[in-house]
């Protein structure tokens, strides 16, 4: 087998690659009974005394490096901060490794590092160690940034993907499809007006607000594969189904327009500043109120509810019910 682009797209093909080649060849995957590699959660945890250290890493290859709403620097720090956050842990520190291509412009690098710094200051997460390498011209497309983050949480208070229970409300913290659609449009040179902007942002503020209220049972940031993937992963890992009211999912008008022109579903493309939470119904309204007051959370909504079924069902007032499936890398036409 040879690796194709679909192996990195976040769909089923990537899941297969992970289980067949990666998981089957790595043997030590867990420390002290914490969350480990094969849990395929947003990060891992290492229980130590009364606390658990949460750890997560992410390699960032964004094309283009600078895009409306952000750049690779912002995404590399925010993305890792977010992965730590949705484990329910307070993010503390970031390590960053940069690989640059020979000839990379110094002024671009500076802008990127300043973006990293901005997110670090906004969240209070320090960038504590790093590494820089340069590769020969032509061996690498401009640059790759790998960030690793650690956070901390009281022992046993980690929020897992698998914690959703029937009856839990599903909260979505804002509009979907912004990052994926903005990047796609910008990258392909479609020349759209600049209303289209990535939502890249650190979500810790919203998560912290929710955790303070309590009742959060599961969390995920809907990055690659969009909410279609994230909702299905939550349902699968928790062994539940859910019904989502499609009319409650916010999609920006511009995102919808682009999706209607490209034929790409806004539910299937990446977000970089959103969280999906499962919340005990008793706490749901309070959590929602708290999230709405937090930065980036003003458009949060309750979009649905988990049940004992096994599908993610989208319900619309007009169109009835359809099954929302996890996206595959290359959609094949199916409309007759």
């Amino acid at each position: 087998m040879k690796i194709g682009m679909s192996h990195g797209a976040g769909g089923e093909v990537m899941q297969d690659l992970i289980s067949n080649i990666i998981l089957s060849n790595i043997h030590n995957t867990r420390v002290n009974g914490g969350v480990g590699l094969e849990d395929l959660d947003d990060g891992a945890s290492i229980p130590l005394g009364d606390y658990e250290i949460v750890m997560s890493t992410d390699g960032h290859t964004v094309d283009p490096l600078f895009f409306p709403g952000g750049d690779i620097g912002k995404i590399s720090v925010a993305g890792t901060v977010n992965d730590i956050s949705v484990m329910g842990a307070r993010p503390l520190a970031i390590a960053s490794a940069m690989i640059l291509s020979e000839g990379f412009p110094g002024e671009d690098l500076e802008r990127i590092v300043q973006s990293m710094d901005a997110v670090s200051r906004e969240t209070g997460v320090s960038i504590v160690t790093g590494d820089t390498k340069v590769m020969e011209r032509g061996k690498l497309d401009r640059m790759v940034i790998t960030t690793t983050g650690i956070g901390v949480v009281k022992r046993g208070e980690i929020i897992r993907d698998s914690g959703l229970r029937p009856g839990d409300k599903i909260i979505l913290t804002g509009s979907v499809g912004d990052h994926g659609m903005a990047l796609m449009a910008f990258r392909e040179g479609f020349g759209f007006d600049t209303d289209l902007e990535s939502d890249v942002a650190p979500v810790w503020g919203m998560v912290e607000a929710a955790l303070e209220v309590g009742g959060v049972t599961a969390m995920k940031d809907p990055t690659r594969g969009g909410i279609a993937n994230a909702l299905n992963e939550l349902a699968d890992k928790s062994g539940v189904g859910m019904v989502v009211d499609e009319d409650m999912i916010p999609v920006r008008e511009e995102v919808r327009a682009v999706s209607e022109m490209l034929g790409i579903d806004p539910y299937e493309v990446a977000n970089e500043g959103k969280v999906i939470m499962g919340v005990d119904p008793e706490y749901a309204e309070d959590v929602l109120r708290a999230v709405r007051k937090a930065p980036y959370g003003e458009n949060a909504r309750i979009i649905g509810e988990a049940n004992q079924d096994s599908h993610v069902i989208l319900e619309t007032s007009l169109g009835g019910r359809r099954i929302l499936e996890a996206p595959v890398a290359d959609p094949v036409p199916r409309v007759c």
């Binding site: 796609m184 392909e188 040179g189 479609f190 020349g191 759209f192 327009a257 209607e260 022109m261 490209l262 034929g263 790409i264 290359d330 959609p331 094949v332 036409p333």
Partner: peptide, 24 residues
């Protein structure tokens, strides 16, 4: 084209880049 001229440009661009263009 529901989105007018802009959409025609998108389709032309899709033909060029191959973004979400299956073959049938």
């Amino acid at each position: 084209f529901p989105h007018g001229e802009r959409e025609i440009d998108v389709v032309l661009k899709q033909m060029e880049t191959g973004l979400n263009t299956g073959v049938s």
